[in-house]
Amino acid sequence: MTNTGIAGTPNLEPPAPLKRRLLLNRLMWVGIVALLIWAYFGTEMSFPRLFAGAGESWKLLFGEADRPGSGFFPPDFRRFPEYLEQMLITIKMAIWGTLLAVILGIPLSVLAARNTSPNIVVYTLTRRLLDFLRGLNEFVLALVFVVAVGLGPFPGILALAVHTAGILAKLFSEGIEAVDTGQIEAVQATGASPLQVLTHGVWPQIVPHVVSMTLYRFESNVRAATVLGIVGAGGIGFYITESIRGFDFRAACAIIIMILISVFLVDTLSARVRQRLT
């Protein structure tokens, strides 16, 4: 379709606002390409190096004939009971880390939801606190807690709890902001106190959301917990580092397989529960 000018002659020039948008669009692409080039240098990225190693991959995976027991395959499950115990500890860490996060997250979410926060100052401060908690990586937190409370699963649990509390409180507060105000007003109209409005008007409405988000974060925490052992914060992660440092790749392979299976089982189970709820 052509744009016809007032005098009847075809108007081939796009209108000014559209022209500005097109120009901005082009500038954006130039910017993106510049960013990618900038990010390339200093990272020692090298595709030739990746493919040069490909020929050796057979040896890497299955070992060399003159060095028995080298390579990743076949996996070495001789210490299976020990691995299993550590895998279960890893899952226990995720359970308690998530639970503590929920306990911390629920009151925080009330303060961080626009419709339940007592005032704008508390609201803003809580939001910033949650941003901060979410910004702290579990791994970094684990390092800090190892220093604070010593090695073992406990610092791992604390690390998961703090990071997850920030995430869950934000997600819960979104649930609170989406509640049906009619139901809230009806509870208020009975003469209920603010706390009772929360426990009897808001809570029943957000339960499915809370449970579903909690399970979702639990799945993610099981994955995160598998590597916390690398910094001494408990669980199976320690055994991965240990076996790789000792060049016992077949043991490492067994552990990785166990992690994959456990994560798969936890995800499937938890996803099934979440589906039931909605």
Binding site: A186, T190, P204
Partner: peptide, 19 residues
């Protein structure tokens, strides 16, 4: 709130807590 206890309210959209 204390006074409100003695005044019941009924709504157009019922406003029962659904769950």
């Amino acid at each position: 709130r204390l006074e409100r206890r003695r005044i019941g309210m009924v709504f157009q959209s019922f406003n029962l807590v659904k769950r």
